[in-house]
Simulated scan of single mutants.
Amino acid sequence: MITRDPDVFFTQAGRLAADFGPATARAAFLVAPDGFARAEQSAGDNRYMAQAADFDPGRASAQHRELQRRLSAVLPTICFAGDPDTPDALFPNNVFATGRPDAARQPGGAPRYLVGRMRHPVRQREAGRADIRAFFGQVLGYEEVDLSLQAHPCELTGALVVDRVRGLGYAGLSERCDEAGARLMHEALGLRATLLFELAPGEYHTNVVLAVLAGRAALVSPAGFAEPALASAIAGFYAPHGMILAAAEHAAFVANSIALSADRVWMSAAAGRVLAEHTRAGLAAAGFALETVELDAIEAGGGSLRCCVGEIY
Rank of each mutant, 00 (worst) to 15 (best):
G181V: 01
A182R: 01
A182T: 10
A182V: 07
A182N: 10
R183W: 07
L184T: 05
H186N: 14
L189V: 06
L191G: 07
L191Y: 02
L191M: 04
R192F: 02
T194Y: 01
T194V: 04
T194S: 15
L195F: 07
P201I: 07
P201W: 09
E203I: 12
V208M: 11
V208T: 15
V209C: 14
V209K: 06
L210D: 00
V212K: 02
L213F: 06
L213Y: 04
A214S: 13
G215C: 04
R216A: 09
A217H: 05
L219M: 13
S221A: 15
A223H: 11
G224L: 11
A226Y: 01
E227S: 14
A233V: 02
I234W: 01
I234K: 03
A235L: 08
A235G: 03
Y238L: 05
A239E: 08
H241I: 04
M243A: 04
I244V: 14
L245F: 13
L245V: 03
A247R: 14
A248E: 14
H250L: 11
A251W: 06
F253Q: 00
S257W: 02
R264T: 13
V265I: 15
W266A: 05
W266Y: 15
M267E: 06
S268D: 03
A270Y: 06
G272K: 12
L275T: 00
A276T: 07
E277H: 06
H278E: 12
